[in-house]
Design a protein around this nucleic acid. Structure first.
Length: 697
DNA sequence: ATTAGGG
DNA sequence: CCCTAAT
């Protein structure tokens, strides 16, 4: 840092000539995208694997007890690889109904062994009611049907015995019909989890949760472009069940990084086309734009009419359909209330999400550069699958469902023991925010209990990742600021029983996933992937201790994704804003970022935010050029006010000075407009010419 | 898609 | 940060 400043004042090196001269958009664009070549892997493999395994096992087993399933599913870890998960899943087809995902996705799945396809069938049998009981009823019915269906094929039953403990926690608060529904689903989910868990001992933790979702009218579903999720039979095993902890890492980048590191451990692994972050981002933006803009503009359900043709249930809520997208979280609580009060429940949805946490022995080396040494490493590969069955009916007796959204982010977090629980929370939260695109509040659970004192250090709290008792709970985060009721709910945590460290309990199922527009969070699941950490801003210098402890962390991610689709006939006013646009999570600029910004602006000027972005924030997808511009704006303002009036993380005065200098320089120097190509970067002449070569980041 | 500003 | 208008 210090030397950085010097660098700046060094003059020679201080303001380098614009690295990115203004160039034709086309060209620049290319350059900007290049970084995203990596792409991401569709994470559905995981789900597929689970499902497949489940199916397989189930088919052979008529038993409905968890015990049986367990036994049957038990697979010797050594055979994991030999036992490709190319289970006969043909009957299962998951259709990823997310437009964004499929439509413009660069994601080109390879031939898949498995495809889960949703068969949009009329929801003829879904009961609709105007009251809670009705809702509940609907849910139950759905579940039953589903089970029935499943039973035919898979024999997935509610394994209370197996999940008893977890069920308990869940059952604690079935105040809402929705909850009840969830519980049931959760159990099912557990089964799957169990199955997966049995697949390999390498699974440190598996967490399954159900995402509550509403079934959308089939029409809507159809409108979605369907994405085929390729299932790489061999991928899953290798990816998910690292046999040697040191050699294989399961990771997903949850942040906006584009690069994936591969561990060449699994040769069988098929090369997978990774979807680039950029792609994701694009899609997401598209989606958001669509919904943020379209919704408000459309009047009189114009949108619904065009989009949801033939959908009659939407009368009161059509608009909402388009809102869910980004409000996943915030609506959560509200939604539930709605469920309660909402007169109509048009859809019953069943969503499942699975989270698999993998505990890598060691952190990926690649992360080192970005991550200061840390004592705790929490790596979690979480996959949440949201699938809703538009219909549980299956003529052929096959289970059909669609995946609404799927996220299999790997949260790779390294925290010093001295870091606080709060920081841990933030770290996780940010990751999730990036992934889910929503504002999520993360609760840290230890031994199933929510850790309250966020100021305690991990050490003090007793959070040792070796204990399989660390969990995270997603809570709805209300922009409005009121505490979310959901927090009151019994936290769903990871099983703390050490007996089965591999399997974790169901996560809080209270998840609502938007159906249509959920931004498919393309998250790749790849064991070869080495996650990078970008929590630098979160954990500045604190990360100093390097403890190569073998930490296991189970991260249970239970995204709460509100479903706007639900009957929300009520006044839109109230939840209008919140539902339409969930504010992005606030990410205060760190000093480091500020410095990067300052430097970039010094060189590029104040009118080339895109270039600034590329230059200094290319890897920070959550920082858009608009953000940078805004930040600059605030920086200029900040620099002009008295230090006492400044808030937040104090920005070093020297940086502010630079801000002012650059600001005045560029505002005065019209050259950018004149020569529009490359204006002379601001030359700082203050200090002696001292060039310090320092490479940051 | 970017840029520029207002809110 | 969000939202818009204008490019």
């Amino acid at each position: 840092m210090v030397s950085k400043k010097r660098l700046y004042y060094g003059g020679l090196d201080g303001f380098r000539a614009p690295v990115v001269p203004k160039a034709p958009r086309s060209i620049r664009r290319v350059s900007s995208k290049k970084s995203s070549a990596g792409g991401e892997i569709c994470p559905f493999e995981l789900l597929a694997a689970v499902a497949g395994k489940l199916l397989q096992e189930s088919e052979s087993s008529t038993s409905s007890t968890g015990q049986d399933v367990k036994e049957q599913i038990s697979v010797s870890k050594d055979n994991v690889k030999q036992e490709p998960l190319d289970v006969n899943l043909k009957p299962l087809r998951l259709d990823y109904l997310d437009q964004g995902f499929s439509a413009e996705s660069e994601f080109v799945p390879e031939p898949s062994d498995l495809e889960l396809k949703l068969e949009p069938t009329p929801l003829k049998d879904l009961p609709h009611s105007d009251n809670d009981s009705g809702i509940e009823h609907a849910s139950i019915v759905t579940t039953s049907d589903f089970l029935k269906e499943v039973g035919a094929n898979v024999k997935v039953e509610d394994h209370n015995g197996v999940n008893g403990s977890r069920s308990k926690s869940e059952g604690g608060s079935p105040s809402y019909g929705a909850v009840c529904d969830i519980n049931m689903e959760s159990n099912r989910a557990d089964v799957q989890t169990e199955a997966v868990g049995k697949l390999s001992d390498d699974f440190t933790a598996i967490k399954t949760c159900k995402l509550q979702d509403k079934i959308k009218p089939s029409v809507l579903s159809k409108s979605y472009s369907s994405v085929h999720l390729p299932f790489y039979s061999n991928l899953v095993p290798s990816a998910c069940f690292p046999r040697h902890r040191n050699s294989v890492k399961l990771g997903l980048r949850d942040d906006d990084e584009n690069s994936f590191s591969y561990n060449h451990h699994s040769t069988k692994m098929k090369a997978i086309r990774l979807q680039s972050r950029a792609g994701y981002r694009r899609k997401r933006q598209m989606m958001t734009t669509k919904y943020w803009k379209s919704v408000p503009k459309l009047k009189d359900y114009e949108l619904s009419n065009t989009t949801s043709i033939g959908v009659k249930h939407f009368d009161d809520n059509r608009k909402n359909i388009y809102k869910r997208q980004r409000c996943q979280v915030e609506v959560g609580v509200k939604r539930r209330k709605l469920f309660h009060h909402s007169p109509k429940l048009d859809y019953v949805h069943e969503v499942s999400s699975e989270s698999i946490s993998n505990l890598p022995e060691r952190s990926a080396g690649g992360d080192r550069k970005r991550m200061p040494a840390a004592s705790h490493k929490a790596k979690a590969a979480t996959s949440s699958v949201t699938s809703h069955k538009s219909s549980f009916q299956s003529k052929d007796g096959h289970v059909k469902f669609s995946i609404k959204s799927f996220t299999v982010p790997e949260l790779y977090i390294e925290m010093p023991e001295t870091s606080t629980v709060g920081s841990l929370k933030r770290a996780v939260m940010e990751k999730l925010a990036d992934i889910l695109g929503g504002e999520l509040d993360v609760g840290v659970l230890l031994q199933g209990k929510k850790v309250r004192d966020e100021n305690q250090t991990l050490q003090q709290t007793g959070i040792i990742f070796d204990s399989d008792t660390l969990g995270f709970m997603l809570e709805p985060n209300h922009p409005e600021g009121f505490s979310s009721p959901v927090q009151k709910e019994p936290p769903l945590l990871l099983p703390s029983d050490s007996h089965q460290p591999l399997i974790s309990g169901p996560a809080s199922p209270i998840i609502d996933v938007g159906s249509l527009d959920d931004p498919p969070v393309p998250i790749s699941l790849d064991n070869k992937y080495e996650s990078k950490q970008e929590s630098k801003s979160l954990l500045p210098e604190a990360l100093t201790k390097e403890i190569e402890a073998d930490n296991k962390a189970i991260v249970s991610i239970t995204p709460l994704i509100p479903e706007a689709l639900s009957a929300v006939p009520m006044n839109n006013k109230l939840s209008k804003r919140s539902e339409l646009s969930q504010r992005r999570t606030r990410r205060p600029f760190s000093v480091t970022e500020v410095e990067a910004l300052v430097e970039a602006v010094e060189n590029l000027g104040t009118g080339r935010w895109r270039d600034v972005k590329i230059r200094s924030f290319d890897d920070a997808n959550h920082r858009t050029y608009v953000d940078l511009k805004d930040k600059w704006k605030t920086l200029v303002h900040t620099a002009s006010i008295s230090p006492q009036q400044r808030r937040g993380e104090p920005v070093p005065q020297d940086l502010l000075d630079r801000v002012l200098a650059a600001h005045s320089f560029w505002s005065q120097n019209q050259s950018k407009q004149v020569g529009k190509h490359q204006s002379e970067p601001l030359q700082t002449v203050g200090t002696p010419v001292k060039v310090c070569l320092e490479f940051e980041r």
